[in-house]
Design a protein around this nucleic acid. Structure first.
Length: 440
RNA sequence: GUGCCUAUGGUGUAGAGGUAACACAGCAGGUUGUGGUCCUGUUAUCUCGGGUUCGAUUCCCGGUAGGCACCCCA
């Protein structure tokens, strides 16, 4: 006996009940919240005429190596070989897959193509708050339109996705920037004369603007090779509180492409009723360098969860990795966990409440095994959801079970009912019982 | 990849260098057809290995696992 117990403990240590690192078991209670979020996402996307698609869980590993950055497409990639020796990888993001799908149909499809998906992804990284190895994302993209209206619609959709959860005023904002504007500013600052490497360093430094101290920032810009006048321009740019402020600080940028597209987007969003929710933010850079127009990030303003919820922007040059001609694309992708943290921090987590009540039908009498099953079948035919008890139960235990499981309706059917040719429906909240005819 | 923190029943927590206490949940019963209360019973080699010690679950070192932050990324 003692030996057996020891063996069991050994086995327990080898086969842990813990789910694999960075993944999460979804028990009904939490899955319910996630599904509520997903169904709201889907509803809002369809409201904008977006259609849902889905790609396979895996792609050829090379697809990600070609495009997805050093980490996401490199050491964080979970890959394996199939029977034919092909190297496949579990998707770490949706953009390459959806680009591949759209490239297939692009020529014959009606433009614009408005697509969304809700899918899971894997990245082999170190888990922390708001970031797991397995995660879900909503991906929304418009293909085939280079118009500012496409950028606008995508941002409107992003805002409505958040607004649909009825967040309190001032709880979030959409921060915009433009890769074009950024490039033009960097050219003004003399960064176009720097090597690619040094230019990257400048961009990285801008990305850290909020996090690092001023002396450090300036030192890094100098190290990258910017002259004093250039550093001044960068500083002025990063310290701009609005587009108007920027126009005053660096007048040379006022007539640039980037300035114009931002001005237009902010103006239209304001006129459409989002005026308190949108702002120019020079520190919105975003990691991937395939972005080439407007970029944006949705910020949670809760002090305990002050972070970017999700972001997106325009990326027109991705189809070429499949050897296809490039087409215009603009999109964004909120993750389930960061979005949930936002909802949680403002205490607006949704739940799904099912309209159908659940009925519990306990087996109260061993003699009535068949009749109880037949009754359950009948109720199900009537469209009711029936939880059938699987063991013989005393009445008090059956009712106690229903209470603990929060089941509102209990079907009472035992010898006395059978003799009268009926069954009872007991409401556990009001205590009232309804008698129904039942003959077999 | 770097740094910091944590590890006690199923869950959440106490505790002290001398072999573990409480709450909740689960199961069984008190209660043979009417519930949420109450009572009883039951559930732990205190994460693993090494060291200090007469004695370690407690102190020290290491492993492992988890959390948080950075890096990276959306």
């Amino acid at each position: 006996m003692v030996k057996l117990k020891k063996e069991l403990i050994k086995l327990k240590n080898m086969l842990s009940l813990k789910e694999p690192k960075g993944t999460k078991d979804w028990f009904p209670e939490e899955l319910n919240i996630r599904q509520a979020i997903f169904s709201t996402w889907r509803r809002v996307c369809r409201r904008y005429g977006f259609e849902e698609y889905l790609s396979p869980l895996v792609e050829s590993a090379d697809v990600y190596r070609a495009k997805s950055g050093e980490d996401v497409g490199g050491k964080e990639l979970l890959s394996f070989h199939d029977l034919g020796g092909r190297e496949l990888a579990i998707r770490p993001e949706m953009t390459p897959s959806v680009t591949r799908m759209v490239a297939k149909i692009y020529h014959s499809a009606q433009k614009p193509i408005k697509y969304f998906s809700v899918a899971n992804f894997m990245r082999n990284e170190k888990p922390q708050r708001g970031r797991n190895r397995e995660f879900w994302q909503l991906n929304c993209d418009i293909f085939g339109s280079d118009s500012w209206r496409a950028d606008l619609e995508v941002m409107q959709l992003a805002l409505d996705l958040v607004l649909e959860f009825k967040p309190p005023k001032g709880s979030f904002c959409l921060a915009l920037n433009s890769r074009n504007l950024l490039d033009q500013m960097l050219n003004l600052a003399g960064a176009d004369r720097l090597s690619e490497e040094s230019k990257m360093m400048v961009v990285r430094t801008l990305d850290k603007w909020q996090k690092m101290k001023k002396e450090q920032l300036l030192a890094r810009l100098k190290e990258a090779g910017l002259k004093t006048t250039g550093i001044e321009i960068v500083e002025n740019f990063m310290n701009s509180s609005s587009l108007a402020d920027l126009a005053k600080k660096i007048p040379a940028l006022k007539n640039s492409l980037g300035f114009g597209e931002l001005d237009k987007a902010l103006f239209m969003l304001s006129k459409l009723g989002y005026q308190d929710l949108v702002e120019f933010n020079p520190a919105v850079i975003r990691g991937f360098d395939y972005y080439n127009g407007i970029v944006f990030e949705m910020f949670d303003k809760h002090p305990a969860n002050n972070r970017a919820m999700f972001g997106g922007g325009r990326y027109n040059g991705l189809a070429e990795i499949f050897g296809e001609k490039n087409f215009p694309a603009v999109g964004f992708a909120p993750g389930d966990e960061t979005f949930r943290l936002f909802l949680e921090s403002w205490n607006i987590l949704p739940t799904i409440t099912y309209s159908e009540k659940l009925y519990f039908l306990p087996l109260l009498d061993k003699e009535l095994e068949f009749e109880s099953l037949a009754l359950a079948a009948l109720l199900r035919q009537e469209g009711k959801d029936v939880f059938m008890g699987l063991e013989l139960q005393k009445m008090s235990k059956a009712l106690e079970f229903a209470n603990k499981k929060n089941i509102e309706m209990v079907i009472i059917f035992a010898q006395a009912e059978k003799e009268k040719g009926e069954y009872k429906i007991k409401n556990m909240v009001t205590g009232e019982e309804i008698i129904k005819k039942f003959k077999i």
